[in-house]
Design a protein around this nucleic acid. Structure first.
Length: 156
DNA sequence: GCCAACGTTGGC
DNA sequence: GCCAACGTTGGC
């Protein structure tokens, strides 16, 4: 069992949007970073736990829980000239970008960046590292457990 | 809107 | 294979 954090801009897809999707499941399209793609393609397994993170918004932070719901397959948006995620250098024969399906499980309280930074137990999270830009990243099991406990508590 | 940090591109 | 230029991310 692996643990992950996945960023989404709530203006695009919020945890509420994900929960409202058919089966609360949606293809995690639009990832255009090789490292993030490799995590989805090579390491994710069905049933892995996911922290659903809201980024580029007024209150960035963990907003819900989700799980990996498929193995990796090509991201269709890369082939669509009308999509903002279109990649003219990709082809059906050799698709460049892969994704997995993500199933939303629950909305949580908003666990903001400032609160995450308060805890020494989380000091090594990749999310909190300087200049971090990865949109899909692994979370250590201890960090995941600590965060799920925090989510059940009131904000500090 | 600003800007630091980072990844990618492409000329050499 | 180096590296400058450029584009993007994402918090503030």
């Amino acid at each position: 069992m692996n643990y992950w954090l996945m960023k989404s801009e709530p203006d695009e897809v919020s945890i509420d949007d994900a929960l409202a999707a058919s089966g609360a499941t949606m293809p995690w399209c639009g990832v255009r970073n090789y490292q993030a793609r490799n995590f989805m393609r090579d390491t994710m397994r069905v049933g892995d736990a996911v922290l659903f993170y809201h980024s580029s918004c007024a209150e960035p932070g963990i907003a819900g829980l989700a799980e990996v719901a498929s193995t990796a397959y090509p991201d269709d948006t890369q082939f669509d000239p009308d999509s903002p995620y279109h990649d003219p250098k990709s082809s059906h024969e050799q698709p460049r970008w892969m994704l997995v399906d993500i199933k939303a499980i629950a909305k949580t309280r908003l666990l903001g960046l400032d609160e995450l930074r308060k805890h020494p137990e989380l000091a090594h999270m990749r999310l909190l590292a300087r200049g971090n830009r990865l949109s899909v990243m692994p979370v250590a099991p201890d960090e995941y457990r600590f965060i799920t406990r925090l989510l059940k508590k009131k904000p500090a």
